[in-house]
Amino acid sequence: MSVKVTRDEVIAFRLEAQNLNRRVDGQSLVAATGVCGVQNSPPGSALLALNARVSGVTREAVNAAISDDKSLLQSWCMRGAPFYFPTIDLPIFTTGALPTTEDGRRHFVLGVEASLNRLEMSLAEVVDRTRNAIGTVLSGRTLTVNDLGTDIAEQIAHELPKSKRADWESEGPYAKGQPLGEGVVHFCLRILTLQKVICFAPREGNKAPFVLLDEWIDNDVPEMAPEDARAELLRRYLHAYGPSYAWGLRLVARYAFTRR
């Protein structure tokens, strides 16, 4: 049975679901981010979004939730954008957003295709190499994406045959003077956030450094089967933005495919 709704009813539903028709109590800061995450792009925009939803929210309160009790986490998430979400919901906003196939992951990190073809490497291979190197490079440290990419790319370069290493170290298309391999590693870091290997540490000035997730989070995070994480992310999206069409349909298609 189909249900017809008006534009005003859709808007009213979304305002209610996202706490935009009235601010919730400041003690509900973490819960408010769990509706469907809060995007922090450009940097700092999450504070504005939370201020619209939570009474008396301050930068200090958000920073405390991230740095002190670590009830909030920031990581790349849907569409490869940085989001705040409750730490306890980590599987939903990482595993739930992780494409299940090589083609799906290449689509998630659009722009890497030509470089992988030039290197004659699959995305899965470079992600694996990046994951294997990142523990040594990042352990006990926080590094910006540029510093992290440089160190990992150099470590991977030493493992490659000479013929492939030449392409890896040649200048790539992403930034002047940046080696091709380093640019590809940057794409792989987005996959590693969804694989729960790294997350963002608090900003240092205008820089957003990375940290190993298992070094950053002190408390245990509940595990969740990938299909359950995808289903829950879809449920939260439809609760916050439904009735919806484009992105919701893509999630439905992905979930339905993986359930076959």
Rank of each mutant, 00 (worst) to 15 (best):
P99S: 00
K176N: 14
G44E: 03
T94E: 08
G172E: 12
V3G: 13
Y84G: 03
R254F: 07
I191D: 08
G111D: 11
R250M: 04
V221Q: 05
A201V: 06
L212D: 05
F13R: 15
V30Q: 09
E125L: 15
L233N: 12
G172S: 11
Y174L: 04
L29E: 11
L73V: 13
I156G: 00
Y84H: 11
S244K: 01
N132F: 05
P226F: 01
T58A: 01
L50D: 04
D218N: 13
A114C: 10
E154I: 04
G44L: 02
T130P: 02
T58M: 01
C188T: 00
W247H: 00
A31I: 15
T142L: 03
T87N: 08
L192V: 14
Y174I: 06
R59L: 02
Q18C: 02
R254L: 07
A153R: 04
L116S: 07
G183H: 07
T193G: 09
T258Y: 14
L213S: 09
P202S: 06
C77V: 05
L98K: 02
R105C: 00
V10D: 06
D218L: 11
L238W: 14
R79V: 04
E125H: 11
S71L: 14
I11S: 10
V5E: 07
E159D: 01
E171N: 15
Q155W: 02
A231T: 10
H107L: 10
A229Y: 13
S139G: 10
Y255I: 06
A246W: 01
